[in-house]
Design a protein around this nucleic acid. Structure first.
Lengths: 207, 207
DNA sequence: GCACAATATGAACAATGTTCACATCGTGGC
DNA sequence: GCCACGATGTGAACATTGTTCATATTGTGC
């Protein structure tokens, strides 16, 4: 673990961390391979010992984002309540996450930047994250791992409205200051009101 | 209107058109200034006689996308019905548009690619398009031009779920083949079912 | 018919993703 | 203990990109 030597230890992790910092503070456009390398104190070509391409580095960052979402689930699981209450808590946590990490959130869902189909690690991270989220919302035993869209049409509505609200907020299409926690909760409550009324008739059957 | 001369006529329009074609067929990554210039038969630097930057060209393309959406409204306006029927038709038209032009749709809402705040022309195009859409849905006389989010909370839910469903489809997060019109309509109906049930209690008061 | 604005050209620049030949280090088999 | 080898780092190079600038050409109003 020398300083200015060839083998510096956990360069891969450092690269991801630096990339996250740049993404968070300056956006995706500033997140170049060379910039990340410089930040870590390594030459650009060294990045390619750890990632096949810039896109794979971005995929790793996005996958890390899903880890954050899993922590979100952990917080959720320390609470219970009826389906409506669960949904409201879910909405608030979800939108707060998007509000706090807009650039990361965008990256996690930009398949034209990171074709997650080509990054199984990322695809799996996304799958398990959303699986856990949905499973928690449906309650234990009411949701299986298939996550079939036809079997659980309500999940489609839930994620559509969540994702749509998150992006409208992030892109500034609605006037909600993402730094104002109360405002974000307000947005969540507004959207979830419609959703709960819409799902109520079917919530008992959990379909 | 000579062929190989300096002044070739409507280069600006040609550039936009070529950019749209490339975006549509090969995606945003392939849409470089040089590529568009080559396609039009002009040297790269000539592009800067018509646009200040690549981003401004993209803004023009996005603005053009909103013109398509206005044509969508025109189609809608050739029909009537109660609010539920209106909403269903809106959902279908909207999602069909997104399905048919995924790359354009993405660009229209990617503020990290085109900061529409910096392109008033684009911002206005988006405003009037969504204004007309929402106005049509609310019905004549029930929606004013302020489009205040607090005054019309239902509009928030509608656009959230529409936008979210469109993106989930485009990004391949749900298994709906955008080329299959019936499947897209099915998606619209699924989402709109939740939405209508959720909005019903408030549709009479139109709030 | 001419000056001027509009528009086109070609060469240049810095920055980017990526590759490749080469250098250096850590470590496991002898 | 050493040494061969894999892992990792370096430096130079390449093509491509967005953008700028000096220069050339054209259409148009006076």
């Amino acid at each position: 673990m020398k300083k200015n030597s060839y083998h510096k230890g956990n360069v891969r992790a450092d690269l991801i961390q630096a990339a996250e910092a740049i993404l968070n503070e300056e956006g995706l456009a500033a997140l170049s391979v060379r910039r990340v390398a410089r930040e870590v104190g390594v030459v650009p070509s060294a990045v390619y010992n750890h990632f096949e391409s810039r896109e794979e580095l971005l995929a790793a960052v996005a996958a890390d984002g899903y880890q954050y979402m899993e922590r979100l689930v952990d917080r959720l699981e320390r609470g219970s309540g009826d389906p409506s209450q669960r949904l409201r808590r879910l909405a608030r946590e979800y939108l707060q996450f998007a509000a706090a990490n807009p650039n990361l959130y965008r990256l996690m869902f930009s398949s034209d930047v990171v074709a997650y189909r080509l990054h199984p690690e990322l695809e799996q991270a996304a799958d398990t994250s959303f699986g856990r989220l949905t499973q928690w919302w449906y309650g234990p035993g009411n949701y299986d791992s298939t996550r079939s869209a036809v079997k659980y049409p309500n999940a489609l509505s839930v994620w559509s409205i969540m994702h749509g609200a998150a992006l409208q907020m992030i892109e500034g299409l609605i006037q909600v200051d993402p730094r104002h926690k109360g405002a974000v909760d307000g947005l969540a409550d507004a959207v979830i009101g419609t959703l709960i009324r819409g799902l109520m008739p079917t919530l008992s059957e959990k379909a």
